[in-house]
Amino acid sequence: MYHKFDLFLMDIQMPELDGFETTAIIRAPDSKVIDHNIPIIAMTAYSSSIYQDKCISAGMNGFILKPVVPGFLIDAIKNVFYDKTNQFIFKQKVKLNQKYIFDEKALITFTQNDENLAKQILLKYFQEMDQRIPTLKKYCKEYDLNILSKEGHFIKGLSQSVGAIKLAKSSYELEKIKDQKMMNACKILDIVSADYISFKDAVKQTRWWG
């Protein structure tokens, strides 16, 4: 049975067919898809403009970062449906500036101004990270670049959500480490660990702690 949908939220990193391959099938005129022109919004943790352009070149209509912030998703959907020229006009830009340790606005946006929810998310974040950081050092000793890269990807996404901007930047460097030397990985891991401590100390000085 075939079903017609109004919108496709496309996860770029899928196990068998990735988002680019799936989009190509949807857009192909000879495929069995009912609506080849269905709006497609890419969902990915990669924030570079080059990656955004790659999504659009593949035939997608919009782009949003993961973890998904509800307000940004609504904006992305509105832009897709109300842009009559069908041009890509929505870009969720994340500034990974070194001077930012804790961006409270990012946390507030993610939790939609729910202070209790923000505190709960931060608590779970710190519990998760307190366990992950020592584990990362173990992987470094075991020379496992692949796992370190995946962990960097995971930490980057979590950190962006809670406003740990500097930590998100160093985690992104760890994510790219699988094609480099282990010596570099261990150095970057030290930076990630230091950025995590800085972020935790920064949060302790705010109303979001405890």
Rank of each mutant, 00 (worst) to 15 (best):
I25R: 15
I101Q: 13
N61C: 01
Y82T: 07
M60H: 10
N113G: 04
A24W: 08
Y143V: 10
N146V: 00
T22Q: 13
Y143I: 09
S161V: 08
S31L: 12
H36R: 15
M129T: 07
N61K: 00
K187N: 13
Q98K: 15
S170Y: 15
K181A: 05
N37T: 10
K204R: 08
S170H: 07
Y172E: 10
M129K: 11
A42F: 10
Q120C: 06
F102M: 03
Q205E: 13
Q13V: 03
F110Y: 00
G19L: 15
L65Y: 07
N61F: 07
D114V: 04
I147N: 06
L7A: 01
H36L: 07
P70S: 11
V33R: 11
L65E: 07
D103Y: 11
P39E: 00
D83V: 11
K150V: 10
K91I: 12
Y100C: 01
K169E: 05
S49E: 09
L136E: 02
F102Y: 00
I188M: 14
K124Q: 15
H36K: 04
W209F: 12
K84M: 13
T111M: 12
R27A: 02
F199Q: 07
S171C: 12
E142T: 14
S31C: 02
C186L: 00
Q112L: 08
D201T: 14
D195Q: 14
I40G: 04
I89A: 01
A24R: 06
A28R: 14
I108H: 10
S161Q: 14
K176Q: 13
D30C: 11
S171W: 02
D103N: 06
S47F: 13
S31A: 04
K169F: 15
T135A: 11
Y100F: 09
Q92R: 03
D201G: 06
I41A: 15
D35H: 13
N37D: 15
S159D: 01
A76V: 09
M10Q: 09
I77F: 02
M183C: 04
L158G: 15
I197Q: 11
D190I: 00
H36F: 14
Y196N: 07
F63S: 06
E175N: 07
T206V: 06
M43G: 01
F20K: 05
L65S: 03
S47P: 02
K105N: 08
